[in-house]
Each structure stands twice: as C-alpha cells, then as structure tokens.
Amino acid sequence: MTVASIPVPELSPATLSPALAIRAVRASYGRIEVLHGVDLTVPAGSVFALLGPNGAGKSTLLKVISGQMRPTAGEVVIGDKPVGKLPTEKLARTGLCSIPEGRGIFPNLTVRENLRIWTYRGGLSVKSVEEQTYATFPRLSERRKQLAGTMSGGEQQMLAISRALVTDPKVLLLDELSMGLAPLIVSELYELVGTLAAQGKTILLVEQFVTTALLVATRAAIMVHGKIQQEGTPSDMATAALSVYLSS
C-alpha cells in the first residue's frame, strides 16, 4: 500500500493551537435535532478523521462548519475567529475549503469551466489553476473539454479535490472522499491528502471506511447519534469503529 509510505507529520495535539474548534454545537432539520451538542477541537496542522455510522450526523456537522447550515446552539471557531453568521462564500474566501459528499463538481460544466469556478476563491488566475491541477492529475488534462459529469467517479473526485489543491486553504473539510470509488483510486486520492497534510494544512475528514482514513489521520473520533462518542489515536479508534459498525 503506497499510502502508508506518505510521511505524516507527527504532531502532538497538546502543543498546537486549534485551527478549528466546535463548541457545544446543536443543529436541526426543522423540528428534528440531529446534532445534540458536539464538541471537537482540531489542532492546526493535524489530519482529523471523524468516523461513525450512517446517520450519525457527520455530514451535518460539516455543513454547519462550512456555513451551509446554522447551528441552533453553540459556535464554530476557525483559527481564532468565531464563524458567526458568515455566509458560505465568505468563509470559502477566507480559507475554508469544503469538499462535499458525493461529487464536489459541477457535472454540466467542462473540466476547464469547473477549474474556472475555483478562481472565485480570489487571487487565482485560471492559468495557474489549470497548470497546477494538470500537473497533479494528468488524466484531467486529457479531459479538459469534457463535461465533468461524464467522467468516471474517480476522475470526478480528482477534479473535486483539485479545489483543495489550488486554493491553498487553511482548513480543509473532506466528506466521504472514498464513497463509491475503487480502492486503487481511493489510495491515489489519499496520497494527495497526505501531501496536503505534509504542507501543514489542517484537515477534517469524514469517512465511513475506517482504514483508509486512519492511514493518514493523526487523530480520530467516533460520532454516534449526533454526539462524539470517543476520541483518541487512530489505531484505538479503528478497533472501536469496527465494533460500532458490525456490533461485534
């Protein structure tokens, strides 16, 4: 497995200031509360894996962090600034990159046009965005005039994650990066996550596939029923997650 060979910075959470702090966050869809007071601290420069079964509220938490959903209580702090009521696009321009579940691409735009959208982050030229992306994913270069939605799942996900690559975010949120993808492509994508981590970016990733996530993670937590059930080192969490998933 190539992923294991990626150098992951050994960081102790205690010595670092948090890049992202979630404090007693509650959120609901209509009358139905799905997050019942979530506390989570992601140290700067760490790769934090958030695990848990379907319906635990992981994706909802990411929506709250990225400003797509307002928490009903609690607060989200990025760096040292509370997010407050900043709209999603402002958050994105201040250095939060969120790659949503499914495919974080515009299926009816071509690859190039998708890359053009990434320049809304500010301070980027189309040219540099294209160069950087094609250098990392030569396959996308071949498909630059193709509609993104007609590419394979793996290529779509490469395009999605290229946003994290070119926009130089401070905090990166990855939701189910490996969903529905073949193992080979998953490891290719996680190789890139490892590279981004090595550049010192703070990454919060939500995964159902425990092992993949834990290969790059420096810290992990398990979320069940809208709450953080336990938090610890990746290897501890791997065992814990398996018992949550298969109830063995």
């Binding site: 497995m1 992923v3 193992p183 596939f209 092992t211 993949t212 834990l214 990746p234 998933y245 298969l246």
Partner: peptide, 21 residues
C-alpha cells in the same frame, strides 16, 4: 459478521490485513 469480504467493504480498501496501520 465473520466474512472478510464484508469487513473489507465496511472498513475500506486494504483492510483485510487488519484494522490498524
């Protein structure tokens, strides 16, 4: 529960060798 294929499906790629690095 004890099927390795199933465990792999749930835990992700390359996990048949076990749940840890």
């Amino acid at each position: 529960r004890s099927d390795p294929t199933v465990q792999a499906a749930y835990l992700g790629a390359g996990s048949t060798s076990g749940g840890t690095q």
